[in-house]
Simulated scan of single mutants.
Amino acid sequence: MNNVKSLITTSLAAVIAAGAVGGFSSSALAAEKADLEKCYGVAQAGKNDCKTLSNACAGHSLKDGQEDAFIALPKGTCERIVGGRLEASRAEAQ
């Protein structure tokens, strides 16, 4: 009986600790995400980060450099990449 009680206590402590670590991680991720920008026209085929104007899922861009597909990059990086833009081109989606 003591083994069961000890197992339950240890499991609860692990769940509480995981929740505390998860809360820290999510706030760290939010801060990191705030320093990112969408960079259009530079993603490889199938490597885009989110839906595009022509499809509904991440990872479904049809070709390299698709005009409406983006990847998240640190702010200021996109403008240094040849072909990188901060806004999607709508011409390709039509």
Rank of each mutant, 00 (worst) to 15 (best):
N2W: 13
N2I: 10
L7F: 11
I8T: 08
I8M: 10
I8P: 04
T9Y: 06
T9C: 09
T9I: 07
L12K: 15
A13K: 14
A14H: 09
A14I: 10
V15Y: 07
I16T: 11
A17D: 06
A18T: 13
A18M: 12
V21A: 11
V21T: 13
G22R: 15
G23V: 01
F24K: 14
S25Y: 13
S26H: 12
S27W: 14
A28C: 05
L29R: 15
A30Y: 05
E32G: 11
E32F: 13
E32P: 04
K33W: 06
K33C: 03
A34I: 04
A34Q: 11
D35F: 05
L36A: 05
E37K: 12
K38H: 13
C39K: 02
V42H: 03
V42T: 14
V42M: 06
A45K: 15
G46S: 09
K47Q: 14
C50K: 08
C50D: 11
A56D: 12
A56I: 04
C57A: 15
G59I: 03
G59V: 03
H60E: 11
L62G: 15
D64A: 08
Q66M: 12
D68G: 09
F70Q: 09
F70M: 08
I71W: 03
I71G: 05
I71Q: 12
I71F: 03
P74Q: 01
K75F: 00
G76L: 00
G76V: 00
T77W: 01
T77C: 02
C78Q: 03
E79F: 02
E79R: 11
R80G: 06
R80P: 01
L86T: 03
E87V: 06
R90A: 04
R90G: 03
A93C: 02
Q94A: 07
Q94G: 07
Q94M: 06
Q94C: 05
Q94P: 01
